[in-house]
């Protein structure tokens, strides 16, 4: 079922998605990524949601050899437990900071308060990091809140916006266009290029949202 696609001459995309998001598959994706990162001819690996992008220098490395290596490592990868920290994210929900709360509540057939509680009740896992610096794709969103992304993205969503879209939860590490729905705002600094570890969150971390006091 796993497919490997070309992503240009120096890239390969391993797509292991098979129906709904699989936590086991995601752990194998991380394990494959870690193993590939020890190989000198791998430039980098970018874990996505049940998929993995691998880049290499096609001047030095034969793409078909890399494809074989990727398939071998994927086949052997096991769904290891990864060290996980719990990060608590304080959120100001609704009002001027959560302009889509009412819309999401209507979609979920819940009150705004029930929607907030559903969002806070989740135990989220950082499945992937990307799109923009420090943006995390969080799995574990209450299925009732799995509202599709906006048909046309907002041109400007503020840094710190606490968002949901396409069945995932996330937070905006910088002000940027986004098609996700805004529930609230956090003042946690999610990414700072000048910190020794720029991103606040690591793959596999557990995230919990609480109401900011």
């Amino acid at each position: 079922m796993t497919r490997i696609h070309m992503a240009g001459a120096g890239g390969l995309l391993l797509d292991a998605a098979d129906g709904p998001f699989s936590d086991t598959t995601q752990r194998r994706i991380w394990a494959t990524s870690r193993e590939l990162n020890t190989r000198p001819d791998v430039l980098q690996t970018i874990p996505g949601v049940n998929n993995l992008l691998v880049t290499f220098d096609a001047v030095q490395t034969d793409p078909s050899a890399m494809e074989k290596l990727l398939r071998t490592i994927w086949t052997q990868a096991s769904a290891d437990e990864v060290p996980s920290r719990e990060i608590v994210v304080p959120v100001v929900y609704g009002g001027e900071f959560g302009e889509d709360l009412a819309l999401v509540a209507r979609f979920a057939n819940l009150t705004e308060e029930e929607t907030i509680n559903a969002h806070m009740a989740g135990r989220y896992s950082v499945a992937a990091i990307g799109a923009m610096a420090g943006f995390v794709y969080l799995t574990g969103l209450d299925a009732r809140l799995a509202i599709p992304r906006r048909d046309s993205p907002r041109l400007r969503v503020e840094e710190g916006a606490v968002v949901i879209g396409g069945g995932h939860a996330g937070m905006m590490p910088c002000t940027s266009p986004s098609g996700w729905h805004i529930l609230g705002r956090t003042d946690l600094c999610l990414f700072d290029a000048f910190r020794p570890e720029p991103g606040l969150l690591r793959l596999g971390d557990t995230v919990r949202f609480v109401r900011a006091s």
């Binding site: 949601v49 998929n51 992008l53």
Partner: peptide
Amino acid sequence: SLFSHGILPGT
């Protein structure tokens, strides 16, 4: 309906 995935310049 695709899950989010890594993309490279040139995509």
